[in-house]
């Protein structure tokens, strides 16, 4: 039973990270129907920035919680800046191009960012400092759920609630929903669509950076390539929940994380990644609209 609970908790942890990244995919897809291939790279850059900030702060004698907060904040700021710039360079000039063009541009941007980090930093795995301290009150159940896992669960829950509130109750959220429904109409009623798109990229990137920092601290090492797998899996989660659908992304992430954790624990861990892809292919064939999505009829 303990083994099951342990798998369950690690599945939830994984799942909430997938969900955080998947939200970025889903929001961008909802508004401009583009798979932002470079989203995983933003997550990776977030983790790298946090690692660098934490490293510098440790040397200058900061300690404990202040490092975690500062590293997280700066990583979020930088991820937002990268997301914004990425959209301006690689996607905005292609707003009216055929659909294949922004997709190829996104793949190019992803390759570029990966290799940029590889060249500017290192091709090797870097040890990531443990930013989350081991809480004393977690001691009795530490074999089932660790302190970092708890922090990941709580942080992602807070982020998702904050995002929902933002989209439901702020002016910008309203503008985002309007743009998602009909971009031309939104423009007609005076919404600055370009700004809405920028803000969408920024929010998605911030969420990805939160995921990146938490994963780095949880797993304990990062390299320039971690964004690729995380990106593909988060995309799977987004499709699983129904792409363009925000609660769907959260649900998809959790389902995928749990399923993967169970499969790795009870079947075989070597084929873990195959399993995620298998889920993706099956979903696309059997229920392309996803768990919570509505099937959209294409009009001619």
């Amino acid at each position: 039973m303990d083994y099951f609970l342990e798998l369950f908790c690690s599945g939830l942890t994984r799942g909430s990270i997938y969900a955080l990244i998947a939200l970025g995919y889903t929001m961008v897809y909802g508004i401009i129907q583009l798979i932002n291939f470079a989203h995983g790279e933003i997550y990776m850059i977030g983790a790298f920035v946090a690692l660098i900030v934490a490293g510098v702060l440790t040397i200058y004698g900061f300690s404990g919680f202040s490092i975690l907060i500062l590293a997280m904040l700066i990583a979020m700021i930088y991820a937002a800046a990268y997301g914004y710039t990425l959209e301006k360079i690689a996607y905005q000039p292609l707003r009216n191009a055929p659909r294949l063009s922004p997709l190829i541009s996104a793949i190019g941007a992803s390759l570029f960012l990966q290799n940029y980090v590889l060249l500017a930093q290192t091709p090797d795995f870097l040890p990531f400092p443990q930013l989350v301290p081991d809480f004393a009150f977690m001691e009795p159940i530490a074999h089932i759920i660790g302190s970092s896992e708890l922090v990941i669960l709580v942080t992602s829950a807070i982020s998702m609630v904050a995002l929902t509130l933002l989209i439901k109750y702020t002016r910008m959220g309203k503008a985002m929903r309007a743009t998602q429904q009909d971009m031309v109409m939104a423009r007609l009623v005076g919404i600055n669509v370009d700004r809405v798109i920028s803000v969408t990229f920024i929010i998605g990137s911030v969420l990805a950076a939160i995921g990146g920092v938490l994963v780095g601290s949880y797993i304990g090492q990062i390299n320039f390539y971690i964004g690729f797998m995380a990106g593909v899996k988060a995309f799977t989660a987004a499709v699983l929940g129904g792409i363009g659908n925000i609660p769907g992304a959260a649900l998809g992430g959790l389902v995928l994380g749990l399923a993967e954790s169970m499969a790795a624990g009870y079947i075989s861990s070597a084929y873990e990644d195959v399993f995620a892809f298998g889920v993706l292919v099956l979903i696309l064939i059997l229920r392309p609209a996803g768990l919570l999505g509505k099937a959209v009829k294409q009009k001619v």
Binding site: I89, A97, S105, I107, G108, A109, L111, L113, Q114, L119
Partner: peptide
Amino acid sequence: LVFGAVMVLMM
């Protein structure tokens, strides 16, 4: 790095 940039610029 160049391949990635080329893909973006070509598009």
